[in-house]
Design a binder for these strands. Structure first.
Lengths: 151, 151
DNA sequence: CGATAATATTTCGAAGTCGAACTATCCGAC
DNA sequence: GTCGGATAGTTCGACTTCGAAATATTATCG
């Protein structure tokens, strides 16, 4: 959204930075999608599988907070992953409210099949930035991502 | 997605930066949504209205490339905006394939009612970064967003 | 002129996304 | 022990999003 908003200098600068940030993320994700690095998975599905693969089995709630999505959304994504046989639901014996999600064989196989190519694509995309620039970008994003309430 | 991927140093660094970037954008947008800065509009709807407000009437295709969304998506968003009376479709007289989108009175009123608060919220969120940091972040995002093909 | 290619938009199907309302279960206080 | 409040998931409705196929229209080429 290249805007023609006429505000104070600080407002213009902020708006400009915001637009660059969101555009950057958008087009980076679009280019990754175009490269088809995660096969027939959606990005949400991949994020869930990747989290389970590296962190082990989790409850649905934990999955949700891991990938920053609402609980109702997680239900849907897990439904689809379960239907595809990549993931398995298991109700907790002690606390029957909670459901544990486990990767199936097919699920971890999927991650292993897809992850190296995904990482390679990322490295390629980011290679336009130097090591130092990547570091700086990471730090600024971390700061901005945490927000004011973390001060 | 804090990953435990064990790769080369470059791979780890890139993955880390990528995660920070996407998390930053996600949580920033989430906080803005929480602040309710754009009223009852969705972010896509706001983006369309804002583009029309600042750049004037456009064809649907132009709107799509402005906000980086697919044409089929634009159809839907414009449908909803039109139903809400914020926008008006007008078929081109010369080339009857194209449709021009115009803001209605209610549409530009909506933008004017909502934009100042939105900008104020942005300025507040970004105030955790210094002017120089914002500048740097913007430049790095611009570079990464453009990608390799623009070299 | 007429067939064909290109362009602008729509339709359709599937998935994601949220908030709100709901169900089931557990926990704490009385 | 049971009632009321917290907690984990699900369901529902509305919107977003994409890609692929379809439609309508215009442009081009032989």
């Amino acid at each position: 959204m290249p805007t023609h908003f006429t505000g104070s200098r600080a407002e213009m600068r902020t708006l400009d930075t915001f637009i660059k940030l969101t555009r950057c993320t958008n087009s980076l994700l679009a280019r990754l999608a175009e490269r088809n690095t995660i096969g027939d998975l959606t990005y949400s599905q991949f994020a869930v599988l990747e989290a389970l693969y590296h962190l082990g089995s989790m409850t649905q709630g934990e999955v949700g907070s891991k990938i920053l999505k609402s609980t109702s959304n997680i239900t849907t994504v897990i439904d689809n992953l379960e239907r595809a046989g990549l993931v398995r639901r298991e109700r907790d014996a002690q606390d029957r409210r909670v459901i544990h999600i486990h990767l199936t064989e097919a699920g971890s196989g999927k991650v292993e099949a897809v992850l190296p190519g995904h990482v390679a694509a990322l490295v390629d995309e980011f290679s336009i930035l130097s090591t130092g620039e990547q570091q700086t970008l990471g730090e600024l994003c971390k700061k901005l991502g945490k927000g004011r309430e973390s001060e």
